[in-house]
Design a protein around this nucleic acid. Sequence first.
DNA 1: GCACTGGAAGAACGT
DNA 2: TCACGTTCTTCCAGT
Length: 830
Amino acid sequence: MGAAPGSGWEDGEFEFKLVFEEDPPEHSISIPSPPPSSNQRAGMHSPPPRRAAIREFSGTYESLPARSVQVSESCVVKCPSIQITTISPDEDPQTIPDCWNIGRSGGWDRERLYLPLLDPFTYRDRCPGSLSPSPASSPSSRGWLSPASSCDSLLVEEEELNEATSSFGLSPSSRPTSPGGKKRRNSPLASPCTSRRGSYSEELHACNLEGGDSASQSQAPPSSCELNIPQKTRKTSLEQLSPREADQEQTPGHSSPCPLPDAQQTRRDPPALSMDYLPVPPSLAWGRTRASAHSPLFSNALPPLDWPLPSQFDQYELRIEVQPRPHHRAHYETEGSRGAVKAAPTGHPVVKLCGYTERKPLSLQVFVGTADDRSIRPHPFYQIHVTGKMVGTASHESVQAGTKLLDIPLNPENNMTAIDCAGILKLRNSDIELRKGETDVGRKNTRVRLVFRTHLPLAPPVAAPGRVLALQVASLPIECAQRSAQELPVIESVNLTSCSVEGGEELLLSGTNFLPISRVLFMERGTGKLQWEEEAHVDRDNSNECLLCVRVPAYSDLSISRPVSVSLYVSNGKRKRSSTHCFKYLPLFKEEDPLLSRPSVPPLDGGPVYPAEAPPRMDRGFHMSEDRGLGFHLPPYPAAIAYHEEFCSKADPPGEEPGGSRAALSERHPSFENLELGFTELLPPLYPRVPQPSSPSPSPWLDSPYLSSSPSPSHSSSLSPFPTESPISNSPLPPVPTSPFLQCSAFPPEVCPSPPSNPYQDTCPAPYSHYEGWDPQGRVLGTGQGGEGDAKIPECPLEFTSSASIHHITFEESEFIGEDIQAFQSSSHL
DNA sequence: GCACTGGAAGAACGT
DNA sequence: TCACGTTCTTCCAGT
């Protein structure tokens, strides 16, 4: 943080480090237990309870105010807490001073978490048989734990044990409904315990509160453990407690059915003994603190789930090869499973770890993250859920900081995994919102991302012994609501990300659920208020349900001297608005403003090289290298990769900044700065240089505190230490037609495919390849659902900009986010 | 019978 | 406070 040379961090920011160093054990796999210190989900949301303060009469924790700083009576600013953790008793004391010294010495080490790399098998071997094949149905939501709730770390650990225990058959599933069966109206299960307002998870946990063997408990029908009090009353009495808290609350003597080995016990105990959280000055708004929460690429422990992480480092890259479908109806606890998240048209999401050649097996963690424009964090209202009875992916469900994780082995042969066992469980809004410390609202908060994370044990000189490199990548947003998927318009891509303030440009919006009454509106916000809004003229003749052809309206102020970012969205009526999409108005006149400069990027088709100063029309997404810098989640086409590498080396020769400049970076990823709340604004004047491919690690990036934050695909790539044109983005493409009606952009930006040389293509077709195309009249050309034979990938006549540039938050959500963002952005622009 | 899926009823919520 | 529309949650029925 503040110590990184040149980082530009203001004085007054706290430095911190978690000192947890100890002799790293031998490790052949890097799935250490999550550090208890990270037990707070989504760090900013819920101040973990001070251990000494637990067990109030009310049965609630007394949360520390550390993560919610009340600025004014009506304004509470989230800010990170600083967690200071003592050293484990069995720690090598010699390492401790070193840690501190390192920290004081400045440099990126201040960013490090000196936490122990736990026994690599601790995670799995906590309980016998802890690695279960995925067909084992998970206890689903039974084990959901209030991500945002305050939990003592010990409670977390114990809950994890219980979770593991129940997962592996030490006790029958205690949740009778999901996924094993559905509640019937007349079934005995439909007792008061299963009334609409009852929560299985809650109540079943309550059952366990009675103590005793969990197995026998769970075998009893839910009604038997009905607390026999009004639901609301019961909720109130327990609302401040996550199930696990409640569990712990009422079973002080509760013993894990799977006792920890002593070593592990020892390892677990110390952090909780001295956990404390120091408030960060309220002047640090959450946006900034989030953006500055640069996660250590290398640490001896797993970073918290809400820490932004890069998707790429050096040659290592975690990439989503096949994106999940944009819609997946999550299931409630009271429902049966709705299956695993799927890709389109068939198959499942595929994640690949590139650049890892070791034979050591790795694990891929999957959890459900948020999809708003804040940095990704575990979604409080959704949890990952193992599903599928015939899935091929072995998996292990666990809980970290109240967030369910799916651990899926990464095959060393190809480091590619099809995520065919990941369902999404919806938690009841009321259950979550009433939780103490939870500030998010569940209503209409139905977009999620699948977040994939892996930890690579790297050897020197890349990293110090025992340290791991954490990479994370998030999927495109997934709409989880039933209704929304049917009615809300969805912008999947646009062909234009900016134009002059005069407007008039033709803008093509590709997406779904467009109606004849659909309107396209441009708006600008300031300090949370709508400052300007203008409706674009829609060319109805050339629009259809998947495509809107509009004219960009003129901006309200034609005399702007700098680009102005606005948002656009599609409205099908009140409350039926799409997510917002960033759009930029450019000044009329030219100026030597680096923000306006653009990199000279060789076109893909050998076309002209655009000058750095390009007319607004250059922002048309037809030029893949311009706006398709998603990179990490694109199917790997070897030729494209080769081109990519070659191009990258040419476009950004060593010693030059990626993409030419920071400005270029943001220009090439037009959504970047807005997506991350002005994250790019925080970038240092000298954007970290591209590491020499041949230069030995540690990479110069190690010195940069700006590596973090991959809340969205674009972020990940944008922040990668290499120029981030994705392989696909540089793949040769058919000529781009000027008419938008030759065919729909059947593929969102990340998929505009070249022939499937991907060996996984057969089983994992290109994402979204099912999307229909249209004929000039807008008729559906085909669904591509007919199997591989039909899965012929059409030429991509239209190149749209990345959907990753879509904010993917609803209008209402953006309103809800409100002033925090605006305040941050405005300050960042200064 | 189970897992999965789509639809819809009715409660809860917001305006 | 009420009416109404929207959203959420639960349940049904089909494959």
